[in-house]
Amino acid sequence: MHEYSIVSALLDRVDDAVRLHGATAVHRIRVQIGELSGVETGLLHEAFLMVRGSTVSAEAELEITAVEAQWRCAMCNRIVARGERLSCPNCGATARLAKGSEILLERVEMEVP
């Protein structure tokens, strides 16, 4: 399970923002997690609750937006449906992952005196 190391990287990044803006507490952290990112949102949330205690984010809420995977043809942009081969039925080109790989820190809401 690597969600603890993801949370630790997340809290480091939040700390940078806290220092930069001279904040005293973090209220909410918003992240996006893609379906094909390799990160489990449930485990991420659990790990966050375990780790946040000793940090400036101790009272913070973690808001996770799950992003569904979507494959599209790299040439004609056609959506490749779930369970299909990852090549375009129209033009034969390889599909690319258009959405669903996100491990993204979107926004931090913090208390600035």
């Binding site: 990287a9 990044r13 005293t24 209220h27 992240v31 820190l105 926004r107 931090v108 005196p113």
Partner: peptide, 26 residues
């Protein structure tokens, strides 16, 4: 400090980051 109503509560400031959580590893 909140200057809207003078309640003295600290401001909640939203900061947009839009960066990979694994940016340091990347």
């Amino acid at each position: 400090m909140c200057e809207t109503c003078g309640c003295g509560d600290p401001d909640i400031v939203p900061i947009e980051i839009q960066e990979s959580i694994l940016a340091v590893n990347d």
